[in-house]
Design a protein around this nucleic acid. Sequence first.
DNA 1: TCCAAAATACTACTTTTATGCTATTGCCTC
DNA 2: GAGGCAATAGCATAAAAGTAGTATTTTGGA
Lengths: 210, 210
Amino acid sequence: MKITVAIIEDELDIKSSLEILIKGTDTLNLVGSYSDGESAVLELPKVQADVVLTDIHLPGISGIECIKKLKEKCPKTNFLISSSFEDIDNIFSALKAGATGYLVKSTSPAKLIEGIVEVYQGGSPMNSHIARKVVSSFNSSPANAELEKLSTREVEILEMLSKGLRYKEIADRIFLSTDTVRTHIRNIYCKLQVNSRTDALNKVYKNHLS
Amino acid sequence: MKITVAIIEDELDIKSSLEILIKGTDTLNLVGSYSDGESAVLELPKVQADVVLTDIHLPGISGIECIKKLKEKCPKTNFLISSSFEDIDNIFSALKAGATGYLVKSTSPAKLIEGIVEVYQGGSPMNSHIARKVVSSFNSSPANAELEKLSTREVEILEMLSKGLRYKEIADRIFLSTDTVRTHIRNIYCKLQVNSRTDALNKVYKNHLS
DNA sequence: TCCAAAATACTACTTTTATGCTATTGCCTC
DNA sequence: GAGGCAATAGCATAAAAGTAGTATTTTGGA
């Protein structure tokens, strides 16, 4: 059984070379080809391709928006990004939206085919540079740099703040007066240069899902 | 210049085959070999290896603890996990601790060497199965289930809440009255069954860094 | 031993949030 | 065209959070 593939690509010359490449590959079956997100969103649910290869920058809605919209209607489809850029924001947004692989446009035709097969087989094709960025997001330590400014007690309290506990609840848990908790929090905010719980948490618990 | 490598591995037969493998590879230079975390933590800062290959399950402190302790003292070292298991918790803990690659024990010697070189060159070696798990963590959608309860406007406002904006600021941005924003937020809290901003965010933006 | 930072605690006040209740408009569906 | 939901908006009140200033005790390091 061939892997059914669809592409979304607005640059027509790239689009046609992709078409030729996929059509010319035995194991793949091109079942759709769109030059904008809107038509892809309309047509792809009927097609239910195994793999959709999409550009990020499209004329109307972006490839990322496109994936978001299609994810529900095509739960079995693997979305693969093909982008000119390796910037971290695009990568994360794409993965968050539901893409499972991220190829750069300069990828060779052979590697591209390999990527399509790999994503179909449950992998996550991406070059090592991108993989490192993804992995680094797990221990992104600008956050740690902020945390180091705080004392042990302050970190402890900040953790409780992150759980949504109120001052009184925090005070009860660590057997302090509410006023002391208040003081600690004031100092935390001062050190982090913020002035609300949410800002403090955003500053320290930087994460790629925000 | 050879890549300097150290290993931490408690099973002696595996340890010695790794030693032989690395010593027998031209491009690699074995500069340390330890059978427990404690001695590795003591010795490795002196060695400053380019790559450290470590088991997760060690007699005393775990490989993960080991990485945490070493990260500060060996900022340039790339830590590579070699584990028998592919379970998601181990993978995430390892990456959070500062590992940049994750190999399974069944990896062939050739692939292992490749992994060492790859991590040294800025990549993140891991098999496609593991890569998919890592990528999936970005769009882990228990959160989405919560988000689907909310209307478009509510999601929009929730996003602004997550940025730490105040009611007034939100109102100004989307040209509504503060009272309307207030109403929307009340409805959001009701639908999510929470009663504070932080709780709402924790419920929706579940993430692996928390 | 003395200093600095951390941890504790209080008073007083302002701003922001959260909750409860109500109401109008528009849109979609049955 | 009746009912429901989304979006809009208001009023009132209570609770929580944030700001400001001050002060004592403990503790770890120079």
